[in-house]
Amino acid sequence: MKFDVRKTAPFALFALFVFLFPLFGGKYGTFLMARIGILSLYAVAFNVLFGYGGLLSFGHALFFSGAAYGLGIALLVLDWPLWTGLLIGLLVTFLFALVAGFLSLRHKEIHFAMVTLALSMLFWGIVMKWRHVTGGEDGLAGISRGMSVRAFYYLSWTVIFVSMAVVYRILSSDFGLLLRGVRENDLRVLFSGHSVRRVRMIAFVFSALFTGVAGILWTLLDGAVTPAVSHWSFSAVPVIATLIGGPQSFAGPIVGTFVYVLAEDYITKYTMYWQIFLGLVILAIVLFFRGGIVGIVYDRILSRFVSGGEE
């Protein structure tokens, strides 16, 4: 791989910004920024399936909350040490991914979306009712991360950057090419001698695992798990963030998450009717700006400079 300044410079600037942010962001800002990072990882993991694999999952909350509850139950109910909690969290996500992948990957498009949605709601139904283990509607509170918000901010952004780098490597490898092939034309992948189900399953498990990592970070940041993270409306978060940012690029979901979280934070200060803005933005994106923010920036601005130079 060649070293490309145009691609590396924005990334380095972004990393520097993240690094310096706690110095001027204030306590709430730092907390919000950690949250944005975690949700960005969630969206990037989701977009492995959506943007690259062509599969719209409406049930990624299953993997997010699977890891969160795995961690919470291990720490608070079983009273195990933190590191086993992390392992249990990821293990739960992995098992969920195997089962959900087996059931949902027989389908495409709407069916796939519906089956993932139903499976995540199955878990939600269990979480709400299995009170003595999951805490029911109240969830599990009192999970200690054992460090200050600022320290945790650096820890979680490190994990986020490393995870994203791994996802990026996977997506730009030959496996990523195969996955895009499946999105474009699964029949041709089959007749290229590859098992489409295997490709989809591997991508599914990857996507779920990094979603689980996000779920674990989220739980440690909040110090609690609530059923809200297993509800399907939480599955919609990466869907919307990715569409705002643009699913066709790696950075799209990250940009989208920033906009989504900051807009929510800002608008809810002034009105309780934040959803109506979100809804209208979604309508506008679907009808007029299907490339998302990254798509717009690329089409309207960058392409003028890049075209000609790229060939």
Binding site: L56, A236, I240, M272, Y273, Q275, G279, L283
Partner: peptide, 26 residues
Amino acid sequence: FSYLLPVPFQLVLTFGLVLVFEDVVR
């Protein structure tokens, strides 16, 4: 206007309507 769009966009479009209607009712 979404009839010719890929399925994910159709789903998300109608999801946007859900958000709007919910707040209108509220």
